[in-house]
Design a protein around this nucleic acid. Structure first.
Length: 113
DNA sequence: ACAGTGTTGCGTCAAACGAA
DNA sequence: TTCGTTTGACGCAACACTGT
């Protein structure tokens, strides 16, 4: 199955200036609770040990990705919220400008009695 | 009460990308 | 080149609604 290539940077700040950056690269130094680093790969030799190391690496990767996905979804939700509130603000602004335009039209349009 | 449908959140995979 | 991070896409389960 062919998946479409994504091209989202999420960086909307270039034009609006006040939206949060969607893609934030946070330092991930802390390991999730319960994760213990194993001995260095250099000390592993037997197929059994190599298999265990591969399994451990996979589980660690899955755990990290699980957390990353949660964080990603949280950021996305926040981003969408921001967009929605910006829409609300712009709608109000737009309404005011339309009203102002109507007022000015009334003032400056030639009267026909 | 039940089945069908929509929504939401999760875990996982894979692709893109940047840093070392 | 390799490795870690980010995120769209997918499938699944749980829950909420709705029509019968």
């Amino acid at each position: 199955m062919q998946k479409p290539i994504m091209a989202v940077t999420g960086d909307e700040t270039a034009t609006t200036g006040d939206m949060p950056t969607y893609q934030i690269r946070a330092p991930t130094t802390a390991l999730p609770q319960g994760v213990v680093m194993a001995a260095s790969p250099g000390s592993l030799h037997s197929p059994q040990q190599l298999a265990e190391e591969a399994t451990r690496k996979r589980e660690l990767r899955l755990m990290k990705n699980r957390e990353a996905a949660k964080e990603c979804r949280r950021r996305k939700k926040e981003y969408v919220k921001c967009l929605e509130s910006r829409v609300a603000v712009l709608e109000v602004q737009n309404k005011k400008l339309i009203e102002e335009l109507e007022t000015l039209k009334d003032i400056y349009s030639p009267k026909t009695d």
